[in-house]
């Protein structure tokens, strides 16, 4: 089971800014360990962000994204107390979903 994300969302002037910090190794599959063996690729492939039940962001991630990725985006609308749900799936089929309320 992956570690939780930290999600913060705030509404200002009709736009909601969502900031997400994910905990993930994001292995590229290019690195070698101390014994010279290739470290298998392990990275987030798809991320979905929902405002209440509506998808507001769908992103495809790849091996070039850093370890413990940080994502920030804005969408129009949203109100205080609305639910934001962010979920990701990685190439090993592991997944994680966390939610936060708009402040």
């Amino acid at each position: 089971m992956a570690n939780p994300m930290r999600i913060r969302a705030a509404v200002k002037d009709g736009f909601t800014e969502v900031r997400v910090l994910m905990s993930h190794v994001m292995e590229t599959g290019q690195r070698k360990d101390s014994s010279g063996a290739l470290v298998p690729a392990h990275f987030i492939t798809e991320l979905t962000a929902k405002h209440n039940d509506k998808v507001v962001l769908l992103a495809q991630f790849g091996p070039s994204v850093s370890t413990n990725p940080y994502l920030s985006f804005k969408f129009q609308g949203g109100a205080k107390g609305d639910k934001i749900v962010v979920s990701w799936v990685d190439n090993k089929g592991d997944s994680r979903s966390d939610e936060a309320l708009i402040a």
């Binding site: 570690n3 939780p4 930290r6 900031r19 910090l21 905990s23 370890t67 413990n68 940080y70 920030s72």
Partner: peptide
């Protein structure tokens, strides 16, 4: 730029 999303927070949560 990245101070806003300091991944130290992940360690703090853990």
């Amino acid at each position: 730029m990245i101070a806003d999303g300091n991944p130290a927070e992940l360690f703090e949560m853990e």
